[in-house]
C-alpha cells in the first residue's frame, strides 16, 4: 500500500518537508508536484511510475476537481488496481496514518476513509476552557 500525495505547485514537496522535519522518511508515501511546466499527461506518467511496484494506493490530493485529482481518478478507473482518491486532507492525518503504513492489510477505500476521518478530527477551532480536575471525593487521582 502506498499513499501518493499530489497537488498544485509544491503542495506535495511542501508537505514532504513537513513530514521530514517531524517524522523523517515515510517509505510508503510518495510526493508528486504538479507544477506550471507540466501537463495532464506528464503528471499521469509520473503517477504510473510510482504505481508500477504496487497494487494498492490512495491518492492524497489537494483540491477536489483539480487536475491532480482528475488524473488520479482516471487512473483508478483504468488500471484495475485497488486505488482510492481523497481530497482536502491534512498533514495530521498523513503523519498519523503514514507512520502505520508498513504492514497495512485492508483495502484502499478503508485507508482512504481513515485519512478523511482523521483529517476531520484534526480540523478544529481552538477554544479556551478551564481544565477541571476531578474532585477529591471521586476515586483515584
Amino acid at each position: 500500500m502506498k499513499i501518493i500525495v499530489t497537488g498544485h505547485g509544491n503542495f506535495a514537496t511542501g508537505l514532504q518537508s513537513t513530514v521530514k522535519l517531524l517524522a523523517g522518511e515515510l517509505p510508503n508515501v510518495a510526493f508528486i508536484d504538479f507544477t506550471g511546466d507540466m501537463n495532464d499527461g506528464s503528471l499521469s506518467d509520473r503517477f504510473k511510475q510510482v504505481l508500477a511496484d504496487t497494487d494498492q494506493a490512495v491518492f492524497f490530493c489537494d483540491l477536489l476537481g483539480g487536475t491532480p485529482f482528475k488524473e488520479a481518478v482516471k487512473l483508478s478507473n483504468q488500471l484495475g488496481k485497488d486505488i482510492a482518491v481523497i481530497t482536502g486532507c491534512n498533514i495530521g492525518s498523513l503523519l498519523e496514518i503514514g507512520l502505520q503504513l508498513g504492514d497495512y492489510k485492508a483495502n484502499a477505500t478503508t485507508l482512504a476513509e481513515q485519512l478523511v476521518t482523521t483529517s476531520k478530527a484534526q480540523t478544529k477551532v481552538f477554544h479556551h476552557h478551564a481544565i477541571v480536575e476531578p474532585s477529591d471525593d471521586e476515586d483515584g487521582i
Binding site: H8, D62, L63, G65, G66, T67, P68, F69, K70
Partner: peptide, 8 residues
C-alpha cells in the same frame, strides 16, 4: 475545461 483553477 473545469479543473482546480477554473472551478475554484
Amino acid at each position: 475545461l473545469v479543473h482546480g483553477q477554473v472551478g475554484v
